[in-house]
Structure formats: C-alpha cells, structure tokens
Amino acid sequence: VEKNTILGKTHEFFQMCDIENKGFINRRDMQRLNSWLPLSAEELENVFDTLDSDGNGFLTLEEFSSGFSAFLFGRRIS
C-alpha cells in the first residue's frame, strides 16, 4: 500500500511540473515552478541538474522518481 502511495505521489508531483503533459520535464517547466514554490530560480536549476542524472536536459518520470525516493529514504537509489 505504501509503495502505491509513493508511486501515486510521484506521478502527481511529476504532473504538477509537466503541466503540458509531455511525459518529461524540461528546464522551462522547472523555472515555471518559481511562481508557486518558495525556491529561487537558481535553486530550481540546481534541483533540475541534480535530478537529471544523465544530463540530457529532460527529466523523465524515472529520474524524477529516483530523486523522490532519494529524498524519502535519505539516499540515492539507482
């Protein structure tokens, strides 16, 4: 049940970022969050770079979920 909750939250947060429903998050999507999250543009850039583990400029659900797991469990899960 807990696993499903985490999966659900991951999807929910991913969609909150990917408002155009592209299936990935780009830097522009991340910068847009600046209007409603208490994070600076620089911090959001940092979040994007940290989550974009392969550095291709696109954040997939997999990368996003890996970052969320790292946050939840306090370590990076590959």
Partner: peptide
C-alpha cells in the same frame, strides 16, 4: 572535499523542493 559539499548542498535543495511540493499538495483543498 568540494564535491562532497556540493553533493550535500544538492541534497538539501532537493529536500527543500520535495518538501515544498508536499506542503503545496497538503496545503490545498
């Protein structure tokens, strides 16, 4: 080690980001 420091800072920013998302979610009706 500067790399370790940068890593720790990133973890902090990440935690901040997800905490904000969580609070936005629970804060909205």
């Amino acid at each position: 080690d500067p790399n370790m420091k940068a890593g720790a800072a990133n973890e902090g920013v990440l935690a901040n980001f997800f905490n904000s998302l969580l609070s936005k979610k629970t804060g909205s009706p």
